[in-house]
């Protein structure tokens, strides 16, 4: 068991609420006295992941486990899945429609940012079934 487990349901229909889970996690980690640098890495990686769940996958579930040596984030959705993960990981690659770009996202930088700010990241995805993203930030 981890020191602390947090679970959030992410509403896939409400773009204005996207990021609420990440914001709540950030607040909890701060109250635990986790170093600010680590919190920022978790917050940004999680936020990009949460946005992706909303704009690409109709929402899902976020689990965050806090351990003495690391923070583990699991983002699970039952969306359309990612056909070519390698391609999706490239900076600038995006299938987001223009309306998402007008909202400030869809520049194809989300997955690269998640990779950049996490110390370890894995993506499991099956087209038509869904996507699970695991990320770890070491403390």
């Amino acid at each position: 068991m981890s020191m602390l487990n947090l679970t959030y349901e992410v509403d896939g229909d409400d773009f204005t609420r996207a990021g609420e889970a990440s914001s709540a996690v950030k607040k909890r980690l701060r109250s635990l006295g986790i170093p600010p640098e680590a919190i920022r890495k978790v917050a940004i990686a999680l936020y990009e992941g949460e946005i992706n769940m909303v704009i690409h996958a109709n929402g899902g579930t976020i689990d965050v486990a806090v351990d003495p040596d690391k923070i583990t984030m699991t983002l699970k959705d039952t969306g359309k899945g990612i056909a070519d993960i390698k391609k999706a990981m490239q900076e600038g690659y995006s299938t987001a429609p223009d309306e998402v770009r007008n909202l400030g996202f869809g520049a194809g930088m989300g997955l690269p940012n998640m990779k950049k700010y996490s110390d370890h990241m894995e993506i499991d995805s099956t087209v038509g079934v869904g996507t699970t993203v695991y990320m770890e930030v070491y403390l």
Binding site: F15, Y47, L103, G104, M109, G110, P112, N113
Partner: peptide, 26 residues
């Protein structure tokens, strides 16, 4: 573009933007 803002952490304290939605605040 918010992902561009998120891409570079260098202790920026001020965000200038022409975008107006709640994700700017987040």
């Amino acid at each position: 573009m918010m992902s561009d803002v998120l891409a570079f952490v260098k202790n920026q304290a001020v965000l200038l933007t022409g975008l107006v939605n709640v994700q700017v605040i987040r």
